[in-house]
Amino acid sequence: MKLLRSLFLLLLVLVLIGVVVAWTLPADLALRWLKPNLGPLQLSGVSGTVWQGRASSAVAFGTPLGALDWSVQKSPLLLRRVVARVGLGGGALVLDGDVTRDADGSVLVQNTTFALPAEIAAPALDIPALKLHGRIEGRIDEARLANGWVSGARGSARWREAAVSGQAEASLGELLADFASQPDGSIAGTVKDDGSSNLEVAGQFVISSGQFSATARLVARNGDMQVAEALRYVGEPQPDGSSLLKISGQLFKLF
């Protein structure tokens, strides 16, 4: 009995030590174990603990993103779920939201806001004659990443103080977009202007299997000559004076 009691006490002490180590595990040590599973994400300048920490530099697909902060809940781990609040700032991309990794390996993103300079979207729009100005802000209400693809996505975005310069200059007001997953697994959305500028925009886009395509009809309101001049470099001129913009490409072309 004395031996059994000693073994029990030893086991209890080891469990307590394990709990303390896990509770205070340095983030940089955990990163060494997790690094093979981070894919294109690279972190440096890591401090804090695995539960609440910070990386002074985050890079994805070779693009610097800024500093990454995280806070992980402990109790969901008992159900093999990782629930965290993640924030990204100090760089071109600003992001803040909730991320959950379920036991099946899928990742759920919820209540996430983001903001980035419009010029980052220039490679996707592929209009070399014009430089994009303003800032794109948006919200992802929900999106699940599983088996390399996104499902159940819902969200919206707004291009604030939209403008172009280069071979033509024009103020475009604010452009609005909404998107949601479709029954066939694609993500579809609409784009329109808010009516505050002399550019009328009406379009739609689809993202499917890592590819995106979009079409939009652009019209200069109120005979605005600056906007009409800018539209000469955007899309295909139409008989009614509008311009039809068609773009397509790979989703990760943005990176």
Rank of each mutant, 00 (worst) to 15 (best):
Ala157Glu: 05
Pro128Asp: 01
Leu218Glu: 03
Gly39Pro: 13
Pro123Tyr: 01
Ala168Gln: 06
Lys74Ala: 13
Val59Arg: 00
Ala202Leu: 05
Ser56Met: 07
Thr24Ser: 13
Gly91Asp: 12
Gly97Asp: 03
Ser213Gln: 14
Ser71Cys: 13
Thr100Pro: 03
Leu34Thr: 11
Gly152Asp: 04
Leu41Glu: 05
Ser208His: 10
Ile127Ser: 04
Ala153Cys: 03
Gly134Leu: 01
Arg135Val: 10
Glu169Ala: 13
Ile120Gly: 03
Asp96Arg: 15
Leu93Asn: 06
Thr113Asn: 11
Val19Phe: 10
Pro40Thr: 13
Met1Ile: 14
Phe212Ser: 06
Ser44Gln: 15
Val201Trp: 01
Thr24Met: 03
Glu161Cys: 06
Gln250Phe: 04
Trp149Glu: 05
Trp51Cys: 02
Ile136Ser: 09
Arg32Gly: 15
Asn37Ser: 15
Leu245Ile: 12
Leu145Gly: 02
Gly249Pro: 13
Phe255Thr: 08
Gln73Glu: 15
Gln238Ile: 08
Glu200Thr: 03
Thr112Gly: 13
Lys192Thr: 11
Trp149Cys: 01
Phe8Tyr: 13
Val83Met: 05
Pro239Val: 09
Arg81Asn: 08
Gly185Pro: 04
Asp98His: 09
Gly105Val: 12
Leu11Met: 14
Arg5Lys: 14
Ala216Glu: 04
Lys131Gln: 12
Ala60Pro: 07
Ala121Leu: 12
Gly18Glu: 05
Leu3Arg: 15
Ser44Pro: 12
Leu145Trp: 06
Phe8Cys: 13
Leu199Tyr: 00
Leu9Cys: 09
Leu145Asp: 05
Leu7His: 04
Gly210Gln: 04
Leu34Asn: 11
Leu12Asp: 02
Gly97Pro: 14
Arg158Gly: 04
Ser151Asp: 01
Gly90Lys: 03
Ser165Arg: 04
Val21His: 10
Pro36Gln: 02
Trp51His: 05
Leu254Lys: 15
Ile207Asp: 01
Trp23His: 11
Arg135Thr: 07
